[in-house]
Structure formats: C-alpha cells, structure tokens
Nucleic acid binder design. Structure first.
Length: 767
DNA sequence: ATATCCGAGATTTTT
DNA sequence: TCTCGGATAT
C-alpha cells in the first residue's frame, strides 16, 4: 500500500484520496485533521497537480507554519502556498492595489492604529457620537466590513441608534484610510472580496491559478472570507473545507456558522467526510464533552468515539473562594512535579476571561511553579517598537497619517497639540495626507512661524531617511534610530524604563538583521522594507508561544483552540462567567459559550479538572457564585467530586434557596440570571468554613429608595433614567428584587436594568 | 510637556 | 478592583 495511506483510518484515507470536487471534512477534536490535510496535499502532488496550483488558507500564522512544516516533511521541496487569509489578502492586494484605489505601498493598520484614525476622523468631521465610544463605533464598522457591506452601501437601521452613528463615521473613516493609503485588518479581506466580485477577468484568472483550495477552520470564516473562497472555486470547484461547527467560537468577530452548515447547499455534490475517531482524550473526557455539546441545536451531529482508555474520572471541585481554588491547583501541580509523575509543561489552566488569571498566577508563583501566560501582541505593540516602526512606515508610505502623528513629536521636537490640530484641520480640509500638509506648513493659517519651521525640519528628516530606504532593513532602522534622535533620547534618560526600551530597540535591530539574512536567499538582494513591515503587521506574539519550554500554560479558552495538554484545569465554571453573563440572553450566543466549554474540555488528554467557587470577588464586588448550567449537561454523577482527601458529603446538585441576607444582588449593569433556568447551587461545606474561618459577611446592595416598585413597570412603557435619558421598555424578566428590564434608550442604546436598584422612573401614561 | 486626579467601564481578540 | 482615557494643574 501507498506509504502515505498507512496509519490512516478509513475516513481519513477517503479524505486524503479525494481529488476533484468540493469536499467538506467535519473534523472532531483530536481526530487528526492536520494530518489528513497535509497528506491530501501530498497526494495531490503525487497525482501530478503542480504545487503552484494549490492554495492552503489558515487563520493563524501558527497554523500556517505548522502546515508548511508538515507538507515539507511529506513532500520536500514542493512550494505549496500556505498562508493565512490576511497575508494572502495582503499579497493579492499589493498586486492589484490600483483596482481598489490604493497605492501598492499601502500600510496595514493594526487595531489601535485604526482606532486612532477613527477617533481623529470623528473629531475632525465633528460627527455626533451620541455617547457611543469609539470602540463601539469601530465594532459597528468592523462588523459591517465582515458582512461585506461597504461604506457607501451601509444603511442605518431605524431600530439602532448606533447604526446611524456608524452610517456617518464609516464613510468618513474609509475615506481617510484611502487618503492615507492604508487598510485595516478587515479591509485585507473586504478589498479582496470586492476586487474579485467587480473584476470577472481577475477572478477567473485566480480561480484557474488556484485549482485546489484548502481551508482550515472553515467554521470561523466570515462573509468576506466566504465570498473570497467562493470566487476562487467557481470554474474549478475543488474547495476542501475542514472544520468543526462545534468549535466555532468566533461568532462575535463575525464568523458565520452558516458557512459550514450550508456547505453542501453552496457546493453541489459536495462530499462530506466525518472524522469521528478521537486520538487525544480518554473515554471519560470525551464522553463529557460529547454530552455537553449534544445540547446545541445548530450543529452537525457527529458520533465521537475513542479507542483510548477510560482514564481517570473528571474531577469536579468546589472551593471556598478563588484563592483556595488557585492554591489548590498550584499545590496539585507542584506535587505532581515533585513526585516526578508530571512535568510543568503537561499542565494548562484555562479561564473564560483574562481577569481570572490573577489568582492563579499568584498561587503558581507562591508555589514556585514555572508558568507562561499566553497574551497576544506584546513585542510589536511596545511603544518604542511601534515608534521606530512608524518611521519606517512613513518612509514606505508618506501618506500614512498614523505614522506621521506617531513620529512627528517623538522624540519631542516641540511640536505640540496646537500645531498638530492646525495641521490636522488643514489636511482634512484639503483631503491631503499630514506629511504633505506639513510640507506647506508656511501657508497654514493660524500656525506660528516657529511651529512651521519645526514641521519643515521634520519633513526634511523624513526625506533624508527615505533616501536610504532601499538598503537592507537593518541599515534602514539603524539610520532611523540614529538620525531621528530616538536612540540618543533613550541613552540620555536616567529612567530605568528607558533603559529597557533601548534594549528592545536593539532587539529590533537584531530581528531586522535576521530578516535580511533569511530573505537574502529568497529574493534578489534581499527583501525590502515593505516585506519586513508586512511581517510585523501580520505576525503576533501568540506565535511566539513556546511549546518547548517546561512551563505550565495559562490561557483563555479562546486561545486554547488547536492545542492539547495531558492535564487541563478549567476554572470558574460558574454561571455568569462560563457561560458569560453577556451571552445568557441569546440562544445563539449561549450555544457559542457551550462550544467554548467544549473546546476547553477537549484539549485535555488524560486528566481534566473543572472547578468553581462559592464566593467570587470580582471587580471589587463579592458575589455568591452559582455553578454553571453547563455542569448539568454533563455526566456529573460519574465525576470525582472528592477534594484533597476531604469528602464533600452533600449532594452538590441539591437545590436550595439562598438565605435572604445572603441574597445575590446584581449591579445595574450586569445581566440577571435567566429566571426560567433551574437554579442550581452548591451546598457544600468548604474548607474555609470547616477551619473555623468566619462566614463571609453578607454584602449589601445600595438601598433602593425609589418611589416605584419593580411591578410598576410594564412592557413598552416609556421611562426616564437620570443618566441615560428617555427610553422604552423592550422586555422584562425576573420577579421581585430581581425583576429586570431591557430598555432601549433613545440616546444611550439598549441597557439592562435591575429595577429594584435603579433610579428608573415611568413617564406619564400607563402604570 | 509632564504629573495626577477622577470617573467610567470592564468577554473573548486568529489578523 | 484595576485600568485607561480625558481633563486639569504645574
């Protein structure tokens, strides 16, 4: 038999052997998906398909690297294009930038660059924001872009005040991006999708060039990505999509689950293959995961199974508070390492929100357990790095306003806010980039002579630097930090923070040298500044997560996707955290939370511990925690609820009423737990109480003193809030003290308000 | 131009 | 409780 096919199960083999026509691989967790995809590429090559006809798209750099590495193993020397969606978009866009009105030297703005641009636009154009933050507006723009709605197509919905703000801001923002010859992350996809739609000959050419397109994590594609893939698979519909609807956790970023659910509808005669055998986890772990995800409606059913051992039962533990939770975990890990049973890198701790990492970090530190936290975007986000790179951006793309603003007074050159405001006004009035405006500084009214001179000096500096842009990147950056005075400023400073900044800049030089050396072989005379910049834009820190160092890994559930660990701890399996309170109102969002839990659980190979606490201090407030409703959807009866030799005798699932003085109260901004949901709570004797520690003091809500009782409010009623103004009640839930209303305010948008604790009052009619 | 003070707001974040 | 941004003071 073909050695390529050995060690593959029947379903995997079938997928690998598939050549022509659309293919959907539904790959359960740990089912050998990457192996199948890479083997399939190798098989295609063996069948005589040319490497240049194959395009493999992933979401992360890490995934792309891994895939490239494994293809190289199977088919050495073949140059298959494996890339992230965004990098692919950037490449294509550089070739055809003219078609969408960009220069080919366009800049890619990261999230904070684009946020800054939006703020300046709103300010300069005096766009009324109606109390919406730039972040909210940016999110609105982004979600429109994800849905492939362009600035001139965008229509506000009358039901959403935010959308009318977006309708004003979006075109202005987009115009400014274009004037700066810049794109944001979303544009990399939007422009490409639009380009393919509007230019049939380009589309046809690319469709035929990329005969075989493979996509990873298809469940996470948004509308723009869908359209791109579709455009590349019309004449040659050999699209192979790999994914798992049950692991779709980026709906909030625009991922559209329908893309994968409707694959067979979109691509006639699609072959669907299910990879259902799991090679990663024990039976006990897989069973719980499967049972949990079975509660989702929007999915494609899979019959997950494993030939692995039954394994240890899942542990389900309740601790007194988060410190007890964290130190117990740290202790367990410490003990396992000390006994030689495990090494640190065998462990991972997952949490729903970053804020929960604190206590775990502290405890691990206290127990001297080495750990690494996976936090995206560090190195390139550092101020000094961004500053220096901004000079490079400006050299590469003189229209880049963000780079201009960043560099113009850094190091300080006496160009302050006033100067910048005048310059900004001028630039917006004439629709020119800031650097061009600075060139004619002498002509700007309201600008002091001194300021104008300083601006001219800056322009001269930029021109001088630009004249050297063609050399090796290391030299370019070298002259930037010297000529700009940036290095000198840091050298002169006696702030120790600046010393480390200096070190970081030196590190950047090293990085650039490496880049020069690496690209030497690939391009004639090395790759240019632009390629270097593109790499800094599209690579992030998560890619640098060291999987070879012997440390415990701490990360959010989102970051955990695609990884696996022998032992996994999932903390704070509590109502309001997992599922997150912001998701509890909407079934689709709730299902996404369930998938998030599913992803977390299925990362575990041998052991899994789910934990929760009775009392959680969060945002300075103490709350009695309620076990996650997801726990009821898992086989808790077979789990091990024993904790550190101390047995909990009371059935954790016995329902009980909270004593009145310990009543959970909710702050006005927090969502109320669903009333219809059966409330479960752990009546467990905790270690703290056994050890005689005083019972937690009941916390007191601010005393409600309204003249109105919660029952005075009814549906559709018009109400007034001292802060948010007038609004209308859209829905009501809960009863008594917990009765809460969702109010649509004319100015402030939709808010959820717990009536007993709010100054909300009815207006006029009804009662 | 920098220090510092207050208030609001606070999921998740592949690129 | 903590952090970030805007406003104000020095």
């Amino acid at each position: 038999m073909d050695p390529l096919l050995q060690k593959l199960n029947a379903a995997q083999r079938e997928a690998v052997l598939h050549v022509d026509g659309p293919l959907l691989i539904l790959a359960g967790p740990g089912s050998g998906k990457t192996r199948v995809v890479t083997h399939r590429i190798a098989h295609l090559l063996k069948q005589g398909v040319h490497a240049s006809q194959i395009l493999a798209l992933t979401f992360t750099n890490k995934a792309a690297q891994e895939m490239r590495r494994r293809v190289e193993q199977l088919a050495p020397g073949e140059r298959v294009w494996v890339s992230t969606f965004h990098r692919f978009g950037a490449r294509l866009l550089r070739e055809r930038a003219d078609l969408v009105g960009l220069g080919q030297n366009f800049t890619i703005y990261d999230t904070s660059d684009s946020r800054q641009t939006l703020k300046r636009v709103i300010e300069a154009e005096k766009i009324p924001t109606m109390h919406y933050t730039a972040d909210r507006i940016a999110a609105g723009i982004s979600s429109a872009k994800n849905k492939l709605i362009t600035a001139d197509e965008y229509q506000p919905r009358s039901s959403s005040p935010l959308s009318s703000v977006v309708a004003r801001a979006y075109p202005a923002y987009q115009e400014r991006l274009l004037a700066s010859s810049a794109v944001d992350f979303d544009d990399l996809l939007l422009h490409v999708a639009k380009l393919l739609k509007d230019n049939p000959e380009v589309r046809a050419e690319l469709d035929s060039r990329f005969r075989y397109v493979l996509v990873d994590e298809y469940q996470d594609t948004n509308r723009a990505q869908y359209v791109i893939l579709r455009a590349l698979s019309l004449d040659y519909p050999n699209l192979a999509a790999t994914g798992d609807p049950d692991q779709s956790i980026y709906g909030w970023r625009g991922a559209d689950l329908n893309n994968i659910l409707d694959f067979e509808k979109d691509y006639g005669q699609a072959k669907v293959i299910r990879l259902e055998q799991n090679y990663r986890s024990t039976k006990a772990i897989l069973r719980a995961a499967d049972m949990l995800i079975g509660h989702n409606q929007r999915r494609k059913k899979k019959a997950l199974f494993t030939e692995n051992d039954e394994g240890a039962p899942i542990r389900l533990v309740t601790y007194a508070d988060q410190d007890a939770e964290a130190s117990a975990i740290a202790q367990q890990i410490r003990a396992a390492i000390d006994s030689g049973e495990r090494k640190a890198s065998d462990f991972a701790v997952f949490y729903r929100i970053n804020a929960l990492s604190r206590s775990v970090e502290r405890a691990l530190r206290a127990h001297r357990v080495p750990f690494q936290m996976v936090r995206g975007q560090e190195f390139y986000q550092r101020k000094e790095i961004k500053d220096v790179l901004a000079y490079c951006q400006l050299i590469n793309n003189p229209k880049d306003d963000v780079a201009f603003v960043r560099t113009v007074n850094s190091p300080t050159r006496g160009i302050g806010k006033k100067t910048l405001d005048a310059l900004n006004d001028h630039a917006y009035r004439y629709g020119t980039p800031l650097l061009d405006a600075a060139r004619e500084a002498g002509l700007i009214e309201g600008l002091a002579k001194r300021s104008a001179t300083k601006l001219s000096q800056f322009v001269a500096l930029v021109e001088k630097l630009a004249s050297r842009a063609a050399g090796p990147v290391e030299e370019v950056i070298g002259s930037v930090i010297t000529e700009s005075g940036y290095r000198q400023r840091l050298v002169d400073s006696d702030d120790e923070e600046d010393a480390s900044r200096l070190a970081n800049i030196e590190e950047l030089l090293t990085d650039a040298r490496q880049f020069d050396e690496e690209s030497e072989g690939e391009f004639e005379g090395g790759a240019g500044l632009e390629e270097y910049l593109e790499r800094t834009w599209l690579v992030n820190e998560t890619d640098n997560w060291e999987d070879d160092s012997d440390k415990v890994t701490l990360m959010t559930l989102h970051a955990a996707k695609g990884l696996e660990f022998p032992v996994v701890y999932l903390v704070a399996v509590e109502d309001g955290i997992l599922p997150h309170e912001r998701s509890s109102m909407d079934t689709q969002q709730l299902e996404e939370e369930r998938r998030l839990a599913f992803v977390g659980i299925t990362r575990a190979e041998q052991q899994l511990q789910l934990s929760l606490v009775r009392r959680r201090d969060f945002r300075g407030q103490r709350r009695m925690a309620v076990p996650s409703s997801f726990l009821m959807e898992m086989p808790t009866a077979e789990m091990d609820t024993d904790h550190g030799g101390q047995t909990f005798e009371i059935d954790p699932w016995e329902q009980f009423e909270l004593p009145p003085e310990e009543e959970v109260w909710t702050d006005p901004n927090a969502a109320e737990p669903e009333e219809s949901k059966p409330s479960i709570s752990a009546a467990i004797t905790t270690a703290a109480e056994l050890s005689g520690e005083a019972a937690p003091k009941p916390s007191h809500p601010p005393q409600p003193h309204t003249r109105f009782s919660p029952d005075d409010f009814s549906l559709d009623m018009t109400v007034r809030h001292p802060e948010y103004g007038l609004g209308k009640i859209k829905s009501l839930s809960g009863a008594g003290k917990r009765r809460a209303a969702t109010v649509e305010f004319a100015l402030a948008g939709e808010r959820r308000i717990v009536l007993a604790h709010s100054p909300l009052e009815p207006v006029g009619n009804k009662g």
